[in-house]
Design a protein around this nucleic acid. Sequence first.
DNA 1: GTGAATGCAAAACCTTTGCAACTGG
DNA 2: CCAGTTGCAAAGGTTTTGCATTCAC
Lengths: 151, 151
Amino acid sequence: MNQTTDQTAEPLLNERLATSGFRFTPQRQSVYAVLLSERDHPTAEDVFIRAKREMPEISLATVYNCLEAFVKCGLARQVTVERGAARFCPNMREHSHFYCDVCVRVFDLPLSGEVARDLPPGFRAVRVDLTIHGSCPDCESAAGLTPAGEP
Amino acid sequence: MNQTTDQTAEPLLNERLATSGFRFTPQRQSVYAVLLSERDHPTAEDVFIRAKREMPEISLATVYNCLEAFVKCGLARQVTVERGAARFCPNMREHSHFYCDVCVRVFDLPLSGEVARDLPPGFRAVRVDLTIHGSCPDCESAAGLTPAGEP
DNA sequence: GTGAATGCAAAACCTTTGCAACTGG
DNA sequence: CCAGTTGCAAAGGTTTTGCATTCAC
């Protein structure tokens, strides 16, 4: 549901890697394509499984390597919404995350960075990590429809 | 620097555990005392090392058990400011965290929960996890004093 | 007395690392 | 060519689990 981002981001891969001293490899192209195709904040293992569909010989270590390279050159973010496996997201705009405790999905929220404005004196903010936990619209309405049991 | 919290929280341990179906044990008292004494957001292993000073026979598994019990009965929070070990904090007031990338310390910030007000329709917020990364006053002033090398 | 908690060790889980072979620029 | 990358396997750090013993209530 955000095709413009796909189209602007995809061509960047090659040059963005190059300007950061990384090489462009088929594995990195595959992993990045996976990140862009399903923007559901996959874990490294999720990416691994999906990338293997197109490139069966790819290894998990390479997926970690690729994801690390993307984070370092500004093509992806590592997101920590829960303990356990890290998740990755190719949305580089300033945003926050909503974690649905019910369906365990992660949503991007367009929240502004005004949060860091009222810091105590002396602190300098570089990055804001904001995750809101709760229930998403799907799970909220599902909960409302089924008060006790099925009809 | 916050003695009132210590004094109000300590007596709660016994009854708070009981009302949640947990038992009061010497280990839980030790672990909780450790949490209250140094409020520097220790990891489970930090707590383990400190608790062993007073109770040498305590085990790491028990420390994890105690911390889990505290989180479940509302005596402590598990804080994830970085990947790696979880940190624990006995401050149950609504607050956020500041993670200093330089000295790797964690500070409590009195930030309000207004962040969750402008959620898209349908989302219901239950908890807000906010961590601001940057440099703390100590590290900011230290950086300013030493432009290149020592005099 | 009984279920919960402890301590120990082993396992599980996620991630990083070592290294030989390979390859992109 | 050659530093960066790959794939594999092994190791690393954190957390959980199994189980016999002990303990709080």
